[in-house]
């Protein structure tokens, strides 16, 4: 399922990591050259601490790279005003969100902020987009509910609907299915594939669920934990035995028939 769309986001010579006070630079990943293309779902896989979240934060204009550039629409994302970047890239984080006394439609409506005026009033058009986004994620019936009354899984879907309402060409999700039950997890993965296939978005998500990743991903980004990033289609990655490098030295092996990891 190789899709060849336009490049929506590209990173060149990227080094990501942390700069601590005493000028000490600790790079988590170095020399990263990657692209996100329209219509593809890219899954980011790696062990805990391999740098998945750090990479996502850097690509999403949240943490300056140590070197290199992240380009959207031909411009460096870090030189764009926050509003312009918010029209290009939307994100969904793992952490629990508060905002308990906002209703679901209000939170999804916040996704329209990059487009609304000074007071954030929603136009009729904005409200239509909010409803479509809720329907697409399957939470239309929750519309008037308070966030505080929702389960973790429902909240996660609300945050995804909010990102959909943001109508950005690029969507990045950090472990979007971690709170979800099996049914919701598969629904969300299906939704993300559909967003890529039907609306030509580029979807980048990090996940610990290898089976899910292998079934929906157009391409994989693997972080073996040595500061490099391996990139390719699922079949390429399996053929090149790159999957084995992901948890090298740990008590698991990649089972090629089940396409998932098993205990040794």
């Amino acid at each position: 399922m190789e899709t060849v769309g336009d490049i929506l986001l590209k990173a060149r010579g990227l080094a990501v990591g942390y700069r601590s006070a005493g000028r000490r630079v600790s790079a988590v990943l170095e020399n990263i050259d990657v692209d996100l293309r329209a219509g593809e779902v890219v899954c980011l896989l790696g062990a805990n601490g391999a740098g998945k979240s750090t990479l996502l934060r850097t690509l999403a204009r949240e943490q300056q790279p140590l070197s290199g550039h992240v380009m959207v629409d031909g411009r460096d994302i870090y030189s764009l005003p926050a509003v312009e970047s918010a029209r290009m890239v939307s994100v969904v984080y793992t952490e629990r969100t508060h905002a308990g006394a906002l209703t679901v439609d209000e939170v999804v409506g916040l996704g329209r902020q990059p487009y609304t005026g000074f007071f954030g009033r929603l136009s009729a058009d904005d409200r239509r987009i909010v409803h479509e986004s809720m329907a697409a994620v399957g939470i239309a019936t929750l519309s008037g509910r308070f966030m505080a009354t929702l389960s973790d899984g429902e909240r996660q879907k609300v945050m995804i609907a909010r990102a959909v309402a943001q109508q950005t060409p690029v969507m990045m999700l950090d472990e979007p299915t971690s709170f979800l039950d099996v049914a919701s997890r598969l629904e969300v993965m299906g939704l993300l594939s559909a967003l890529a296939a039907d609306r030509g978005k580029a979807v980048l998500l990090s996940t610990h669920d290898v089976a899910d990743a292998l079934s929906v991903a157009s391409r994989l980004w693997l972080l073996p934990g040595d500061g490099s990033l391996l990139c390719g289609t699922v079949d390429e990655m399996i053929a090149s035995r790159a999957m084995e490098r992901l948890f090298e030295g740990r008590g698991v092996r990649f089972d090629y028939s089940a396409r998932d990891y098993r205990l040794k």
Binding site: A82, Q113, P114
Partner: peptide
Amino acid sequence: LLVKPLNALLLGARYAESLGVD
């Protein structure tokens, strides 16, 4: 006049920034 960014901040500073709040 700060109503719009204040509402975005209800989701936390990270989400607010991703919604275009400086």
